[in-house]
Amino acid sequence: MSITPLAGRSALVTGSTDGIGAAIAAELAAAGAHVVVSGRDAGRGAEVTRAICAAGGRATFVPADLAAGAPAVQALADAARDAVGGVPDILVNNAAMIISPKPTAEVGEAFITAALALNVTATFLLTGVVAPAMAARGSGAVINIGSINGLVGMGGSALYSATKAAVHSLTKSWAAEYGPAGVRVNTVAPGPTLTRRIEQYADRIAPLVARAPSRRPSRPAEIGRAVVFLAGDDAANIHGATLSVDGGWSAV
């Protein structure tokens, strides 16, 4: 018998047309949730939703470019509500610009603005739309996708680390703000994870992986299962936490 701890619930996952986001969407659907897949690439979005449905899950694709600002964020929230018939039970703030290591002095102002717009501002705005509606209902779970880069300092990673540290901080503030109304807010912080993009930089992440007690990178599905746990009833009294899925890297 399959276990569906999220049966009857709905989820909105931003940036879920590829990589970790797609894996999160697939794991939430496998756990029984009706998932709204979102992102800029309609072709990849269709592929992800087809794969989820072929596996017996429920998914709806909604295109969104969250870097476009508040109107795009509101449009996604409205479309997600229409797709699942109400305010989603679960919001996963995953959409982010992945930034390759670069010396601080070589990072231009326009790039800084773009990274902050997607990694921080979009997360802030979308949560500001969805979480109050969850609070009015009296229940909900927000899971932000952070990073081990937001927990420790890494040379050449100042901008990306700053955006993820902001996400970790927002998690704690939102836990304090929305927790009393029944909305739990937590973070999953992945370490090196075998996405299609990261596989292209295997030589760069090898030294990081070698330091982890597990001696291997994470698999995208493992990030997804951590999200499922935090979204479900087994995590009912977990608020404001950061769950690192990094093979123990940040512990040692």
Rank of each mutant, 00 (worst) to 15 (best):
A105P: 14
E106W: 04
E106G: 06
E106S: 13
V107C: 11
V107S: 09
G108L: 13
G108K: 14
F111H: 13
I112D: 08
I112F: 14
T113E: 14
T113D: 14
A114P: 05
A114T: 07
A115W: 05
A115L: 07
A115C: 10
L116V: 15
L116F: 15
A117N: 12
L118R: 12
V120D: 06
V120G: 11
V120Q: 05
T121C: 14
A122M: 02
T123K: 10
F124L: 05
L125N: 06
L125R: 08
L126I: 08
T127R: 03
T127E: 04
T127W: 08
G128M: 03
V129K: 10
V129R: 12
A131H: 01
A131M: 01
P132C: 04
P132L: 03
A135P: 10
A136C: 03
A136F: 02
R137Q: 06
G138T: 01
G140M: 01
A141G: 01
I143R: 06
G146N: 03
N149L: 11
V152H: 15
G153N: 15
M154G: 15
M154K: 15
M154A: 15
M154P: 15
G156Y: 10
G156I: 04
L159S: 09
S161K: 05
S161I: 00
A162T: 12
A162K: 08
T163M: 00
K164M: 10
K164P: 05
A165N: 09
A165D: 12
A166E: 05
A166R: 01
V167D: 04
V167H: 10
V167C: 00
H168V: 06
S169A: 13
S169I: 02
L170T: 08
L170Y: 11
L170E: 09
L170N: 09
K172R: 14
K172T: 05
S173Y: 14
W174K: 02
W174F: 02
W174Q: 12
W174H: 08
W174S: 01
A175K: 01
A176E: 06
A176M: 02
Y178H: 13
P180V: 00
A181N: 06
G182K: 01
R184C: 07
V185D: 04
V185F: 05
N186C: 09
T187W: 10
T187E: 12
P190I: 00
G191H: 06
G191K: 01
T193P: 09
L194G: 10
T195C: 07
T195W: 03
T195V: 00
R196M: 02
R196N: 07
I198K: 04
A202K: 07
A202S: 10
D203H: 12
R204W: 11
R204M: 12
R204K: 11
I205C: 05
A206P: 02
L208H: 06
L208Q: 11
V209T: 05
A210I: 01
A210Q: 11
P213I: 00
P213A: 03
R215H: 10
R216K: 13
R216G: 11
P217L: 01
S218T: 10
R219S: 14
